[in-house]
Nucleic acid binder design. Structure first.
Lengths: 397, 397
DNA sequence: GTGTCGGCCGTCTGCCGACAA
DNA sequence: TTGTCGGCAGACGGCCGACAC
């Protein structure tokens, strides 16, 4: 039996909208913790974090100093004009392209939060599964063993009156290319397998054991297929196009140029390669910086992604508060919190986080007037204190 | 019979010198027209040409404007501290990494040419061959057919008393990895073939018909093996790391930063992707700009590389002289000569060249005092007129 | 429930000379 | 001189249930 899904909805995503891959598939590949700010909202852009992504991608050790740039503040309030989800042509790794426009000095003074900007939900799809490939899955000797719950939840139901039950699946990858697989339920004990078509997919995508595949059954009755590669540190290779110094200067200069000319600039966000998100919704940022009281010794929790692509909590204690790089990026909120982790396995966890990444634990009543908040150091000049807001105007939650 | 060459010279290139691949192999892959300036010499760097390389590599249409950068002149006299020949890890395409330091304003005034800087020879090796792969060469059905003259010139001589004559060849690729091939002389009529080992090389390097392989028998009795890919314009893909705008700003900012701080910066030169060399020996530049008289209507010749990797002459006529981009890069010598080509097949040839690329044809006595030269427009401010030089001091051939 | 293996075909790889351009 | 092909033998791909964890 041949089951075709594309006939129900002949490529709707290439209709009126811009060419942009399926949002659910993108988020499934990006992971449960990754969220993208909304188009049209205002965000805070951190050149320092952007530099870290480039440094991580070029495999250039940060060696302590990420240079700053004359006239470029450590955080930049921007209008987010455009967000495009896409995937690398070579590796299928997902990335987001964002077009940012720094607010003018006048606009920066008039900042007040809009309710629409509060939403920052990562719409992680539910009708999908993600499996880490085993040696047998990637071997040429056989096919792909589908976990039973996954097959029953995501794949179209087999006709079990057949012997053996089987069907043809057609799945679209991140670039819209279709892949055909024979889905069969056989063996002793019975199990779901993908046989014919699987090996060509593995070799075409150059998958190895440890990489993951993601199948999504989306609302248009289409089967989508993404991949997520295992962290192979040596994969990142030095570009032979531009020196890493030029790249790091380039991203700073592009932002500074946009500030100076009140124009737009474009950045790429690679969720799987990037240590931390460096484009944060303005409301999330403001809430964390102005409405969260932190101090040394305070306990907090944070979310991390597990190897199996689910979410778990880690607990830790704040051990210090201060600039990550006081020389080049003074008065930055980027990873300004030094932390220690509860679990010994957390030795590889980053020793610094940003305020908006953590959830402080308080044992006493939470309610505090925002005006009673005292930052440990003065607010950096150039960023307004939201003068249009008084106590109670910011309904954050 | 197994012939091993590496035993004569166990990895000498990784001894005292820096990790740098074989110069002859690099030049053979780069092509006969590509030359690299010498370490320690002075060069002229053209940000405009560098931008063109990046634009060509990112597949971003130049759309007329390559932005300039405040304080960055269109040509920069630099000390060339370091030249490293290397090859891309993914594609094996050769590139050169150069470390440049702009001369200080004082040094720019004291520029005078040294005899050692005159040499700019491309040491193209002689004991090598380059073959464009046929469909049969890249098919899984068979091996590699070695042209007879090539095998006799480059490969170690076979023991023709054997039936059939055969040997094992070991060749090192651009990264120093060894590849083994069975070299046999058989068939009716007799011909040289590479059989066992060839197909794994083809698939590992992802070679297709039209690509070229290069075998070199170097002075250390080692067999070297390079590849040169056919021009596949769609191969260049948009990087998902940095926007092309950021890259173009970045290379300019890196150079400007080096000028401002009197420090070094690093650039990459991709000879196969780059429209024109943008780091030119100072002597070559000076000779072309000061000692070559050009005018509209003058005939000239120029060298081009043929498909078979040899050199041939093209003839043309100068149709205009002036800035390529008068708005962003005024008073630049970069591709300041508009030309027309004699042959109709030259329609795809670039319509502009730089002075140092062409050889003007004069039917009258060539000797002219350099002081009699008159440029069509004043020398751009900031670049000295070699004040230390008088007629006769510059012995430029 | 699922990862790996032995068994067993069938297809494709890869070496050979024939033949022609 | 060399690009492509038919022929052929062997290797590997790939589908199956067995079996163990």
């Amino acid at each position: 039996m041949r089951v075709s899904f594309s006939e129900f909805n002949p490529q709707p995503e290439e209709g009126g909208e811009k060419k942009c891959l399926n949002s659910e598939l993108w988020h499934a590949c990006a992971g449960p913790l990754v969220s993208l700010p909304h188009e049209g909202s205002r965000v805070v852009y951190f050149p320092q974090g952007h530099s870290e992504q480039v440094a991580a991608s070029t495999n250039k050790e940060i060696d302590g100093h990420i240079p700053n740039y004359p006239g470029l503040p450590p955080q930049l309030i921007c209008q987010l004009h455009n967000v495009t989800m896409d995937a690398d042509v070579e590796t299928d790794e997902v990335y987001a392209q964002m077009t940012l426009q720094p607010l003018s000095p006048q606009e920066q003074k008039d900042v007040c939060l809009l309710p629409a900007e509060l939403g920052n939900l990562s719409k992680q799809p539910t009708n999908y599964f993600c499996k880490i490939l085993t040696a047998s899955d990637t071997s040429t000797h056989g096919g792909f063993s589908v976990p039973r719950r996954a097959a029953e939840k995501v794949f179209p139901r087999l006709d079990y009156s057949q012997q053996p039950p089987a069907q043809e699946l057609i799945a679209k990858d991140l670039h819209g290319n279709e892949w055909k697989f024979r889905h069969i339920f056989r063996g002793q004990p019975k199990r779901h397998l993908l046989t014919t078509g699987w090996s060509v997919f593995v070799s075409a995508k150059r998958l190895v054991a440890g990489d993951s595949v993601i199948f999504i059954w989306n609302e248009n009755n289409q089967l989508l297929l993404g991949i997520r590669r295992a962290n192979r540190p040596q994969t990142v290779l030095p570009s032979s196009m531009l020196s890493s110094d030029s790249m790091r200067i380039g991203l700073l200069a592009a932002a500074a140029h946009a500030v100076a000319t009140n124009s737009r600039f474009t950045i790429f966000f690679n969720p799987r390669a990037c240590p931390s998100e460096f484009v944060i919704p303005l409301a999330k940022y403001a809430k964390a910086v102005y409405h969260t009281r932190v101090s040394v010794g305070m306990r907090f929790r944070i979310l991390f992604e597990t190897e199996e692509s689910s979410v778990r909590r880690y607990m830790g204690t704040i051990t210090g508060i201060g600039d990550l790089d006081p020389v080049h990026w003074p008065n930055s909120h980027w990873q300004s919190v030094k932390v220690g982790w509860d679990e010994s396995t957390a030795g590889e966890r980053q020793p610094r986080v940003s305020l908006w990444e953590i959830e402080p634990l308080t044992t006493f009543p939470v309610y505090q007037s925002p005006l009673s908040l005292r930052l440990k150091r003065p607010w950096p000049s150039g960023l307004p204190l939201f003068p249009g807001l008084s106590n109670g105007d910011m309904n954050l939650n």
